[in-house]
Simulated assay, not measured.
Amino acid sequence: MYGIKYTILRYANVYGIRQEPKGEGGVISIFLDKMLRGEQPTIFGDGSNTRDYTYVEDIAEANLKALYHGDNEIFNIGTGKATDLNRLFDIMKKLIGFKGDAIYGPFRPGDIKDSCLCNDKAVGSLKWEWKYSIEKGLEKTIKYYKEKYV
């Protein structure tokens, strides 16, 4: 109506340093909190649910790019790579050196089975690309939490 420029960014499952494991914390911060305290995390369902886990620094970079590109557009910001909960747990277990196993609970009604974003438009129009694989992002996240809380 007033010709105001906008850019809308739709984020995938964002994780990284400073994420709080309580309340609305994501699965990575919840798993990390439990595993660093020697507790077994719970995987709801069989662990085949997938998410597009995107490291917070990649999200920040997309926000910066959106300041200069993409007026009046909507963009998906994610890696475009799906990671299931079993693989996520295995990666975290290895990086942390956790000795236990996950506990499997019932699938929670309302949980989305699979979620992964196509980022082609953001790559092309925003001149943005994700840089952190799930392993690389988890390494940085775990290092931060170990230094801060352990």
Rank of each mutant, 00 (worst) to 15 (best):
N13Q: 14
T79V: 03
P21I: 12
G45Y: 01
Y53M: 14
N119F: 06
K140C: 09
K121T: 03
I142G: 04
D52T: 08
K131Y: 03
L9W: 07
F89Q: 08
L32R: 10
G26C: 09
Y68F: 12
N49S: 15
L85V: 06
G124I: 07
G25F: 08
Y68V: 02
I17S: 07
A12Q: 09
Y104N: 06
I134L: 02
A82L: 01
F107P: 07
G100W: 04
N119L: 00
G110N: 11
L117Q: 11
H69D: 14
K99H: 13
D46V: 00
R37N: 14
I96W: 03
L95D: 04
S125Y: 10
Y11P: 00
E139S: 12
Y68A: 13
S125A: 13
K22H: 09
G80Q: 11
K113F: 04
R37V: 00
T83V: 11
D84G: 04
E135H: 01
K131G: 05
K121P: 01
Q19H: 12
G105V: 13
E39C: 09
I30C: 07
P21R: 04
I96T: 10
I103C: 03
A122I: 10
K22W: 13
D111A: 08
G70F: 05
A82I: 01
S29Q: 13
L64D: 01
D111W: 13
R18Y: 11
N86Q: 13
A12M: 07
E135C: 01
K81G: 03
F31V: 02
D90S: 10
K131E: 15
D120P: 00
Y104M: 12
